[in-house]
Design a protein around this nucleic acid. Sequence first.
DNA 1: CTGAAAGCGCTTACAG
DNA 2: CTGAAAGCGCTTACAG
Lengths: 357, 357
Amino acid sequence: MPRPPTQRLTIRDIAQRAGVSESAVSLALNDRPGVSPATRERIRRLADQLGWRPSVAARALAGEGSATVGLVFARSISPLGVSSFFLQLMVGIQEALSHRGFGLLFQVVDGPDAECAAYRRMWAEHRVDGVLVVDPRLDDPRFEVLAELGLPAVVIGALTRSTNETEAESESDGGRLRVSQVWADDARAMAEIVDHLHELGHRRIVHIAGPAELAHTQRRVQSLRHEAERLGLVDARSIITDYSEDEGVAATVSVLAERVRPTAIVYDSDVQAVAALGAAAERRLSVPDDLSVVAWDDSVLCRSTRPRLAALVRDTVGFGRRAAEELLDLLDGGPAVTTEFDRPHLVPRGSIGPAPA
Amino acid sequence: MPRPPTQRLTIRDIAQRAGVSESAVSLALNDRPGVSPATRERIRRLADQLGWRPSVAARALAGEGSATVGLVFARSISPLGVSSFFLQLMVGIQEALSHRGFGLLFQVVDGPDAECAAYRRMWAEHRVDGVLVVDPRLDDPRFEVLAELGLPAVVIGALTRSTNETEAESESDGGRLRVSQVWADDARAMAEIVDHLHELGHRRIVHIAGPAELAHTQRRVQSLRHEAERLGLVDARSIITDYSEDEGVAATVSVLAERVRPTAIVYDSDVQAVAALGAAAERRLSVPDDLSVVAWDDSVLCRSTRPRLAALVRDTVGFGRRAAEELLDLLDGGPAVTTEFDRPHLVPRGSIGPAPA
DNA sequence: CTGAAAGCGCTTACAG
DNA sequence: CTGAAAGCGCTTACAG
């Protein structure tokens, strides 16, 4: 025996032990007609018992796809490790995928261009059957690439500025771009926050936002502006940052130093919101008496400060799971669809209070 | 043209356009002798220009391996999203892997048994050439499986309780278990913390630890005990928790309620350390005047509290990168090695002060 | 309902 | 230095 147990089992081993042909085994194991129920069962049991699993490489080569989905993350866009959002998303994605025997190929790249290159490579190397796209941007170069490759994808978050257009379907080359979307209604969520603050008497609200090129940043910014007009707020504006703690603190310090300062600040990043608590304390401002603070995306961070941070809560694991399920549907030949996932909702905690007189 | 640009390029396309045989292309692209420098260059340029990439499926089937590495995470062991540690590790791993054209297959499972099953499956399906193992445990069932499969692996953190034994090499079936280790000297790091606190006058130190089954928990616990004996501390003990915020707070509340309470607490989890700040505040204890607090593994959490949390800092991205590089070496046929990565070092911040009188 | 054959895209001896 | 052939482990028409 050259290398006995290491040698991986093949369909041929199963066929020999079952006393049938290789194709019979293939048919039996893939639930296709052409083999009697009795032998099908026998073959199945044998395969199970021996711990046989099809070689994905062989299946991929035979045209079955790689049973793998790609996820590429550009850390220039939203810094990894900022909150648990991304990791939770991955957990959800993983759950849905492994349920169906699919693998998740994960890659971190520097920016959008590298991300496009990564898709091309994954595709050219036959590594993935489809991809999950996060952080959709305005004028996102990735969709051209996906269209060119004919690579099925699900966008997590919405593709477009207004959630009604579905670029995916309006693509001119019809049918080649197979992109589903799973989105959350950030605009309504922002409106909910603003309304809540408005009811508490707040008229000066600042939104410390993420990067301008992100589609969801735009939706939040527009929603704030819209609500501000509707409610006649004195001051309501968004300040673009790169999600970093530093820029968040800088923006916070800057607005708190204004002659008439805001009474409430909404942060797109939980890290920034937490850091802002420190900045406010240093200015001798009490949260929530002098200043109300809200963090987008709840995390353990928000719950560990005193006061605890009011935050937008959503089922991020479920979000990821749903996105992966949509991709699997697409790979099964389903149509590209746009579905809304549960809207994030505001959980008011100690950091929100009535506006100071 | 049935489906023109979607059709992926093959080695045959390159061969035709270059006017050579397929094997010539293969040899040229894989840097093997048997083709003239001129044609090699020509073939290379052509492949580059056309954007050709080898099908990993085909290569894997032809015996070249899948150029993919697996990473399985059991969330029952240390909850995901607790700190940015894991994500940073992945970023580092990714960097090293993509540098060499390797992919990272990521999977989340429920516990150790599911993790073993995941390795078996990845291996049987020809999905991975090797794996990275995190959170090594005492009596870890995973290494038996790795040995049985002959699956090369790198353990992140040390395999054994005392870092001198290298089980990897002492395996009886000699050579089949190809496991390298990259470890950090947690014992020395703990000693450093204890010494620092001791110098500040602390004699009662409590360590709120992670799960007992983790090898690094044991090393920290033992180190604390050892240092306590050496320095003659009055009270020094470790309390095992599951890393959760709840158990951390419970343990904190419990020790702070004792008649003679500790003057310093070291937390294995940054989340617990931050939460403890709240618990201390509720008991009207001032940090650091009444209580010093240290968090293992620094994170943005530790820097956003007031006072900022003293923490053990290390280059987690670099740690991941190194581990991945060790695995690549192993896959290149290198020997299994045990290497130490930079020891975490204590960064004292506002949460550490002299022991109260 | 079952078996023999071809092919997926590579690599690798093996002849020329 | 180059070409034709076999094989990796599957799937899928195509005969029996």
